[in-house]
Write a protein that binds this DNA or RNA. Structure first.
Length: 628
DNA sequence: GTAGGGTTAG
């Protein structure tokens, strides 16, 4: 006992101090508990000394065991609570709150009903937790009833109003949410809640209108709006809102930053991400689990895997949850560091963190990106057998990719057919892509034509099929696919690459002429082309889809967006600075070999993020080992 | 003394 107490608070009370002080210090100790073991010891002392009837002591024990983050034990809280003769209002609220945040939030309602029948009364805090319980468990009927109880109770404050709106938005029952909002427009929290509700349901236009109409905004309002744009994948708009917010004098806190970071990650805006990190450091903001995970993910997705690892280590075990681990595992996988990712997965298991479906996406991608077929099969099997996680389309996608790359196309096809329900477009595209890499027309042809029927407006299906035919010289078939695409009016998605220079992101589209310095850039591209040819490079024109002569095809290749972006980087960034490019599609094979050569001839590290993974080009080689 | 906005995969 003494040793534990010492470890919590070296100033163990002097036996000479008055009794009430000693009791207070024990309650103070309770608030410092980190583990259940410590709580047991203090609890035992309280019983021995008869102080257990102290209301504050009971509350502190229940508080720790019902809601603390570090070592929750609701059963323990329950047993203390049930033995208490006349529990305080605060204790009852703690129990309701504990249940509402547990695996079975509905028990909060059961407890409430039971206590109500026993003649107890409640205050507004209880209702707040009860409505939260209904929100989490999506208990529509119960939520309605609690809403009724609140109205009967008679006193609606901003917190209750916003909780009710939140409940109806998440059920979802937008009409009811709107009605609840209309009847509580006097509270800013109601506005925040309804904006958040519309945002999360993707109704951004309504959310935006309400936001503009709001008589007064708070940081919460801005964060709700940003979250909405992020959820819809409208990352640039999310960043615009973030910047406007600051111009209007609102300084972001941890939650706003955690909300906006995913946009920075998706756009690959490293400089902005670094700005966020230094902002956090300058303001001495605590890097909690949410913020830490978001930052870590930003560094992974912006190509700074070393910074991500650094942060991950600094965060330490206490500040990691499954999301943190998942982000790091997926990050390593994305950067082609498969064995590091798998090692980290083992570490995660040792730490006692239970893997989720997202973890296995990372694990399988790790295997896939470095071609570890057997390991991948093993994990795919383990996922179901050991962890009871049912594979989703993402997992099937990884497996098809894994088998496909290894050339086991029959196996891959078999797997798509064994999927529960229809294999989805992404999985089929993966299979078709693998067929193209291996020039397997027998399987790829069937898959390709099926895909075109399954996703008639998706240009990438046509492109893949056409490239498959091209790779084996079936030019007549290439023409057939191309004509069908034209007939149906399917638009090709233009390749787009971006590169940051200072705080400005420059975007390039294939064949784009709009950049103010485009002539200079094309001159550089030509120069690169000539220098590369001198080194024995021949353009790979087989994958060019348009019907033009060979010379034109070469030119078309030179206009690929990543080549423009890299040329722009070479012109503007002094040697020694890594060029970082983000691309919306997969890197084509010509751009891949060209970038390798550039990295050697111009002695430049180049990091390209494509749709699937990172390519680190250095001294003529790529981290993907030409396997992507 | 308790309550409204936050992180991974797609």
């Amino acid at each position: 006992m003494a040793t534990v107490l010492k470890s919590i608070n070296p100033n163990t009370p002097n036996p000479k101090t008055p009794k009430s002080d000693r009791s207070n210090s024990r309650i103070y100790l309770l608030k410092l508990c980190k583990h259940m073991r410590e709580l047991h010891q203090i609890h035992a002392t309280l019983i021995k000394t008869g102080q257990i009837h102290d209301i504050a002591a009971i509350n502190a024990i229940i508080e720790f065991s019902a809601i603390s983050d570090s070592a929750r034990n609701l059963h323990y809280a329950e047993s203390v609570f049930e033995k208490t003769e006349n529990p305080s209002l605060f204790a009852k609220n703690l129990m309701i709150r504990g249940h509402s945040q547990s695996q079975d939030p509905i028990y909060a309602i059961y407890l409430y009903v039971r206590l109500l029948n026993e003649g107890f009364e409640f205050n507004k805090f209880a209702f707040s937790f009860l409505i939260q319980a209904c929100t989490i468990s999506k208990s529509i009927q119960e939520g309605h009833q609690i809403h009724g109880q609140i109205l009967k109770f008679g006193e609606i404050d901003p917190h209750l109003a916003s909780s009710i709106i939140r409940f109806y938005s998440e059920v979802p029952a937008l009409d009811s949410a709107r009605r609840a909002f209309e009847s509580s427009r006097e509270f800013m929290a109601s506005w925040n809640s309804i904006i958040d509700g519309y945002s999360k349901l993707g109704e951004m236009e309504i959310a935006r209108r309400l936001f503009d109409e709001m008589p007064q905004k708070s940081l919460i309002s801005w964060t709700a709006l940003i979250t909405g744009y992020v959820h819809l994948g409208r990352f640039k708009e999310a960043l615009e809102v973030f910047q406007t917010m600051q111009k209007e004098g609102f300084n972001p806190d941890q939650r706003t930053l955690a909300a906006v970071l995913p946009s920075i990650s998706h756009l690959g805006a490293l400089n902005l991400g670094k700005w966020v990190h230094s902002y956090i450091e300058n303001l001495n903001l605590e890097v909690n689990i949410f913020l830490g995970s978001a930052l870590l993910d930003m560094y992974c997705k912006c190509g700074c895997i070393e910074s991500a690892i650094d942060l991950f280590q600094k965060m330490g075990n206490m500040k990691r949850n499954v999301v943190t681990w998942n982000a790091m595992i997926n990050g390593l996988a994305m950067h082609g560091r498969g064995s590091d990712a798998l090692e980290l997965f083992q570490e995660m298991l040792v730490s006692g963190t239970k893997p989720t479906d997202v973890t296995f996406v990372g694990v399988l991608r790790a295997c896939s990106h470095v071609g570890m077929v057997n390991e991948g099969m093993l994990y795919f099997d383990q996922m179901r057998r050991v962890y009871g996680i049912l594979p989703t389309v993402e997992h099937y996608g990884c497996m098809v990719d894994l088998l496909g790359r290894a050339g086991q196309l029959e196996e891959a096809e078999k797997l798509t057919k064994s999927m529960i329900g229809q294999p989805d477009v992404v999985v089929m595209k993966t299979l078709l892509g693998a067929c193209r890499v291996h020039g397997n027309v027998e399987i790829g042809e069937g898959v390709g034509w099926d895909l075109i029927e399954l996703a008639p407006n998706d240009c990438s299906c046509f492109v893949l099929l056409s490239n498959l035919y091209a790779s084996v010289g079936k030019w007549q078939e290439v023409g057939r696919v191309r004509n069908l695409m034209k007939e149906r009016g399917v638009e090709k998605i233009a390749g787009c690459s971006s590169i940051e220079l200072g705080n400005v992101t420059h975007e390039f589209h294939a064949g784009d002429m709009s950049h103010p310095r485009i002539e200079e850039i094309y001159a550089k591209v030509e120069e690169i082309g000539e220098r590369l040819k001198g080194e024995g490079y021949t353009p790979d024109i087989t994958q060019v889809l348009v019907d033009i002569d060979e010379e034109e095809k070469e030119k078309a290749l030179l206009r690929h967006s990543e080549k423009l972006a890299i040329a722009f980087g070479l012109i503007n960034m002094t040697s020694g600075i890594t060029i970082r490019v983000v691309k919306n599609l997969r890197v084509c094979s010509d751009c891949h070999s060209v970038t390798k050569l550039i990295s050697k001839l111009y002695d430049r590290e180049i990091i390209v993020r494509d749709q699937n993974r990172f390519h680190h080009f250095k001294e003529g080689l790529c981290s993907c080992n030409d396997f992507w």
